[in-house]
Amino acid sequence: MFRIIVSLSLILLIVSCAVTEKHVTHDNIIKDRGNYKYAAWQPDASTGFEAINVLLDEVDMLIINQDYNAGADKLERVLRIKPNYAPAWSRLSWLALQMNSPERSVQMAKRSNSFAYSDPQLQLLNWSFIRDASKILRDEESYYRATQKLESLKAF
């Protein structure tokens, strides 16, 4: 009898994991700090500036060491090199979430989206930040809009 209960429990657990929609939340980003980077942030050859890659490597080190302020400073240096570099704005949005600044996170994600018109993957990520930040802010309208946007982008 005990074996049956244990087996059923395991099956239930596996099934529930499989059907649960996997989405990035504030909490699991923090838990997964060692491997926090999103594919949408990966620098591509189009940045045109090797300096950006150097700074982003430094940002990674700082974030792993939880020095978020210094990480944000480095990202600002990236933006001074290339103001329309959407992944850097997106990282600032993520950092703002880590630093409990949801309003700032929303604005940075919007700014990132304003440069990411041809990058649906990054837009998706930014909208997920907006949704998470809106949840923290208890801004239902914004949360609903972000969720809808995420759905439409996923469909796209």
Binding site: N69, D73, L79, L92, R104, Q107, M108, K110, R111, S114
Partner: peptide
């Protein structure tokens, strides 16, 4: 440290 801030309120 005075960090970068942005605010949007008009349609881009």
């Amino acid at each position: 440290r005075y960090s970068l801030e942005v605010k949007s309120g008009v349609k881009p």
